[in-house]
Amino acid sequence: MKTGTLILSVAARMLVPLQVLFSIFLLLRGHNEPGGGFIAGLVVAGAFALHQFVYGPAATRRLLRVDPRDCIGFGLVLGVVSALPAWLAGEAFMTAQWWPVLNTPLIFDVGVYLVVLGSVLTAVITLTEVDKDDY
């Protein structure tokens, strides 16, 4: 199913990958420059929201491959998991641990990213789907 103008549909198709990339960039640089999990999650959610406006929720679900609700769950798990290493290291719960390449604040931020992405998309996609059913 396709709605909207040609310009919008082409723009949506081009913008989604760009915005996903941009969101990952925002996520990774968030610790040092403006950005971070919340913002990056919103950017990518916006991208998919645009996509589903143009191509409909079913197409967006196909593009996403995972159910956005699973994103929420996975994000929450990451958030909790990032708290555990400190415990194992014998420090106070949730103390940040730094290893080469990876660190717990980053894991946590990825968790935030996934929850924001999942929550917004769950709401938007479900709403659209219900409307399609109703009308």
Binding site: G30, H31, N32, E33, P34, G35, G36, G37, F38, R69, I72, G73, G75, L76, G79, V80, S82, A83, F93, M94, A96, W98, N103, P105, L106, F108, D109, G111, V112, V115, V116, G118, S119, V120, T122, A123
Partner: peptide, 29 residues
């Protein structure tokens, strides 16, 4: 190890608060 203090507060200094907040968000969704 972070230069963006706002983000450091969110994911490190006050990470437990943020954890609670994403739970709220997940619940709402």
């Amino acid at each position: 190890h972070g230069h963006n203090i706002v983000n450091v507060i969110l994911v490190d200094f006050r990470a437990l608060d943020t954890l609670g907040e994403i739970f709220v968000l997940a619940l709402a969704a």
